[in-house]
Write a protein that binds this DNA or RNA. Structure first.
Lengths: 204, 204
DNA sequence: GGCGCCGTATGACATCTGTCATCCGGCAGT
DNA sequence: ACTGCCGGATGACAGATGTCATACGGCGCC
């Protein structure tokens, strides 16, 4: 092929983002043509710069890299999507794949895999850590209903039932019911553990 | 000056670590001579490679970058210490300074500040974000006693009072007393919020 | 020596949380 | 039309959690 691969880099921590750009800049066939720090700037930047590959961190302000991936996949289906994350949570992998991601990398994988993944997705390959894929399959799908997840997410900061009821426009009893079923589904013993394990699995 | 600045890079996520190495590698006067992924490997590597500056992430397995900084400061006082962290928690800044750090950088600062900080600490300067310094001073010192902190830390994963009592070899009542005083000192309304705010301030 | 703080403990009390049974309306399958 | 699931709600109950008063030994400070 003639020209270089045009890459968009989305990552909120500028030091990490620019460092990754420096890393990719060492490759002859790759060029970082756009950098954004927020999830909700990804689509516009991808469109504007006509990128070949978007490299998306999950944890970002605005919207998550997974939501951004879904947007780009819908609007610019030709753009290949590499999701990059700190946390190798099986639930993340699952959501990323459902959002149309072509590759899923964790940040503690060797740096060489980054450029490699970029080239592979452009060649039509999918890049997924096999161990993580196995874990995602083994753990099954998210058992929580939308409301349960929402209540759990809202409860994560330590809010009391009364506050949850108020913010979610529910009765206190209903809040307790949702938390109770969530606790049972996750096989834990209180809301704090429920938040913890739901987070770990990427179900929040 | 004649030779290059020898830098040790300690960061657990290899992709980020190698990316930072690539970034520093672009500077003519800086050379990354050692990379480690664990806090407890920092001292040995620093000694072995005779580094000028150690660049330490806080969140690492083995021991934290702050603990590693304290070790290096004690054993190799000539080595300059740059602490790098994802979270700009005032309490972290305070602990880092007490551990003998010369610079404190957050990862969402511009990448250019990294090389700059390396050069400055070598010149005897201290590099601290003024906003963060102000926050650290404004918030005052950690009001929690050792035991309160320990109980809170242990309670962070959602353990019940009975479990806390067992793991910490305390009576359940004592556990509740500690949590109660911690909750009051942090001006919150339950243990979950206490854990949250203590974490945010870097007091855990 | 007295004062204050820390670590530890107990008991009593009020409130919060988690569980369970039960109910209703809506909506998707079969 | 029947069944099952989801969102939503109530009431009752048991157990967990948070508060408070009180106590004791140890340690540091003045």
């Amino acid at each position: 092929m003639s020209s270089t691969i045009k890459v968009l880099l989305a990552e909120d921590q500028s030091m990490v983002r620019e460092a990754l750009a420096a890393l990719l800049g060492l490759e002859d066939d790759i060029e970082v043509v756009a950098q954004v720090a927020r999830g909700d700037e990804v689509l516009a930047a991808a469109r504007e710069h006509g990128v070949d590959v978007a490299l998306l961190d999950i944890e970002m302000p605005g919207c998550t890299g997974i939501e951004a991936a879904a947007e780009v996949h819908r609007e610019l289906p030709a753009v290949k999507l590499v999701v990059l994350t700190t946390f190798g949570r099986p639930g993340y992998l699952r959501s990323a794949m459902e959002a149309g991601a072509d590759a899923f990398l964790v940040k503690d994988a060797p740096a060489a895999q980054l450029a490699e993944a970029v080239r592979k997705v452009l060649a039509g390959e999918r890049v997924i850590d096999p161990t993580l894929a196995a874990a995602a399959l083994a753990e099954g799908a998210n058992p929580l209903t939308d409301r349960e997840r929402e209540v759990l997410r809202t409860a994560a900061d330590g809010s009391t039932n009364a506050e949850l009821a108020r913010t979610l426009h529910l009765s206190q009893g209903t809040v307790r019911n949702y938390l109770s079923t969530a606790i049972q589904k996750l096989a834990v013993r209180n809301r704090a553990e429920a938040v913890r394990t739901a987070r770990e699995k990427g179900w929040l």
